[in-house]
């Protein structure tokens, strides 16, 4: 293997970390509130808003049913608008977020629905406002589920980022495709795949530790 390749692998690893970090951040920032709304706007919950609930549910379902590789292409005009280019590491972030945010929203929804209705009722009986119930009851009580959701989303994003690499996104996936697939360099392909496996293991391990910490209570 060409020694110069190590530098490239190092750069690709950093690119992957950068892509994942940025997309997790935006997915949580967008998917989180959507997930909360999907719960509280639902029938019989804190603030039933049937229209918003149905519209948001539809958007989430549509985004989740478009295959990621198609989404990558469909997003190109919007990506250009947002980051000024449609190739490179940063340009991979918008399609990644468009795919992961709705997924995370559903995970948040599931986690919040697990919160005991009796506890919500108790907070209402104490005179809690809806915002207080969200911040002081729903989110803290669902913390283990939320952390697990972030972990699952991040792991999914690692897989997707490799796919984003295929259309010039950069990162380890891009490297694997360029050397491994296009130049038949099996060594580089195996190495990058091994690195991705290590990333996933690390993330999952850290996430599980956090979940355990929060659910000991």
């Amino acid at each position: 293997m060409d020694p110069g390749l190590w530098g490239e692998i190092g750069q690709a690893s950093l690119d992957t970390v950068y892509m994942i970090a940025l997309s997790v951040l935006f997915s949580v920032a967008i998917g989180g509130p959507v997930g909360v709304l999907l719960v509280i706007a639902g029938p019989g919950h804190l603030k039933p808003m049937p229209w918003l609930y149905r519209a948001m549910g539809a958007v989430v379902n549509i985004l989740r049913s478009v295959p990621f590789i198609i989404l990558l292409i469909l997003m190109i005009p919007l990506t250009r608008l947002l980051v000024g280019t449609s190739i490179g590491v940063t340009a991979a972030v918008p399609p990644l977020v468009a795919s992961a945010a709705p997924f995370f929203a559903r995970l948040v929804e599931t986690a919040l629905r697990e919160v005991d209705r009796g506890v919500i009722e108790a907070a209402q009986a104490m005179g809690a406002r809806p915002a207080q119930i969200i911040w002081k009851v729903l989110l803290p009580e669902a913390r283990p589920g939320l952390v697990a959701g972030i972990t699952i989303t991040a792991v999914n994003l690692i897989g997707y980022s490799a796919m984003a690499g295929a259309i010039g996104g950069g990162g380890l996936g891009d490297l694997a495709v360029r050397y491994g697939y296009q130049r038949f360099d099996t060594g580089v392909m195996l190495l990058t795949t091994a690195l991705l496996v290590v990333f996933v293991q690390l993330l999952q391990w850290a996430g599980d530790r956090l979940v355990l910490h929060f659910s000991r209570r």
Binding site: G118, E121, A122, A125, K136, P140, R217
Partner: peptide
């Protein structure tokens, strides 16, 4: 108007003391 429930309905993410403090935080 205080309320006491059959199944207690305590916040599982808070200690005993933090549960008692909860309505005071709200207020």
């Amino acid at each position: 108007i205080g309320m006491v429930f059959q199944h207690f309905n305590l916040l599982s993410s808070r200690t005993a003391a933090e549960n008692v403090a909860f309505p005071l935080e709200l207020a």
